Computed example of a mutant assay.
Amino acid sequence: MLELNDFCINRCCAGGLKLSDFVKLANEVGVHNIELRTDIHKGSNFLDDLSSAEFNQLQREYDVHVANISAEFNLDDRSHWNNKIQAVTELVNLAQKIGAQHILFTPIRNAHDIRTDDQKFADLVHNIRTYSDILGAAGINGLVEPLGFGDSSLRFPWVAQQVLQEADAKNFKLIADTFHYYKAQVTKKDFDEKVDVSRVGLIHLSSIPTNKSPKEADDADRLFICDNDEDIMKTIDQTNWFKESNYFGLYSFEPCAPEIDQWSYDKCKQEIISSIKKIIAG
């Protein structure tokens, strides 16, 4: 049975709040792990202009720490390579300062991408191998999130596993995301037979309470957890796949609907608590 310590909240759970309020919110719902995002900030950077020392004081005050930083990098993009190396290095240095355990990378989404599947695979291997070395030298781990969209260069977890194996990236693991599994139509049979659970480092959870097909569903439809009979993705059922496996990592809520940015502190708190209860009950 899952407990509060098994949960994490992504900053998009309360994207309209200042980072200081988000950290306080995590403490109030009893969750001690958070995900930061480089695409959400109330200042010039994703720490809302707080210094690393000021943010660390918040972490100590509210007994919260950063499970990962979700970075705005197209994982398999090899253009402007020196700039990418510099940006990754700078993010790694900041991750060290704030005690972040992982940095999360996502692949390219481009409907006009003319690369073959073999070229995409080779670019992923090349970049991950390099990033793995940079992160590893600083004691930071990496996460790769296959995106189920049709225009994604990396859609399926079993392909991502092959990439990590080819890159020999021992400090990288995969993210399993119920939304992206729905988009890519990953089944329980696929998960049981093709996904090595030991390579999964985090699970992202959300629900879509509208009747949208995998092709139609988008990030803007992703809300907090609702009952199975209301959720087209059946996220509670999907979560039970992970519960029944040998996965023992964090379960993080990642509802991306832009309307959440308009919600009050109390509304976000209520939805997080409700989601935790639904996932624990299964």
Rank of each mutant, 00 (worst) to 15 (best):
L124M: 14
R129H: 12
L174R: 01
S153M: 09
D133P: 10
L135H: 02
E145N: 03
P157G: 06
G148C: 04
F149E: 14
S132Y: 04
P107L: 04
P146Y: 03
Q161A: 00
H102N: 15
A122T: 14
D133E: 15
D113Q: 02
N110L: 05
D113N: 10
I103R: 00
Y131I: 10
L104Q: 10
A95L: 05
Y181A: 15
G142C: 06
L154R: 00
S132F: 04
L174N: 08
A138M: 05
A100V: 09
L164V: 05
V144A: 04
A169Q: 00
Q161E: 11
A160V: 07
D151H: 12
V163S: 02
L154H: 00
D123E: 11
L104K: 08
A122Q: 15
G99W: 04
L124C: 12
K173V: 05
N127G: 02
Q101F: 11
L94N: 04
T106A: 14
Q161R: 00
I175M: 06
N110H: 06
I114R: 13
E145Q: 08
A169G: 01
R115I: 04
N110Q: 03
G148N: 03
L104H: 09
Q162V: 03
G150Y: 11
F172M: 07
E166H: 10
A160T: 06
Y182H: 01
A184I: 02
P157D: 09
R109K: 13
V186L: 08
F172G: 05
K183E: 05
T187G: 10
F172Q: 06
G150V: 11
D113R: 00
A100M: 08
I98Y: 01
A95M: 08
V186I: 15
A176F: 13
D151I: 14
G150E: 13
A111F: 11
W158S: 10
F105I: 11
F105A: 09
I103C: 02
P146C: 06
T116Y: 01
D168N: 15
A169E: 01
D168A: 13
P146W: 03
Q101S: 15
F149Y: 14
H180I: 00
G139N: 05
K188P: 09
L147K: 08
Q119N: 10
H102S: 09
A167T: 04
Q119A: 13
R129A: 13
I108Q: 04
V159A: 02
N171Q: 03
R115E: 07
A184F: 01
S152E: 05
L124P: 07
Q162M: 10
Q185A: 13
D117A: 14
K188S: 12
P146V: 07
E166R: 11
N171E: 05
L104G: 04
Q185F: 06
L164Y: 02
K188W: 08
Y181P: 07
Y131W: 11
D151L: 10
D123I: 05
V144L: 12
L135M: 08
S152M: 01
T178W: 02
R155Y: 01
H112P: 07
A95C: 09
S152D: 05
V159P: 03
F179L: 14
I114A: 14
G99D: 07
Q162K: 13
A111T: 12
T116L: 03
I134K: 00
D177Y: 00
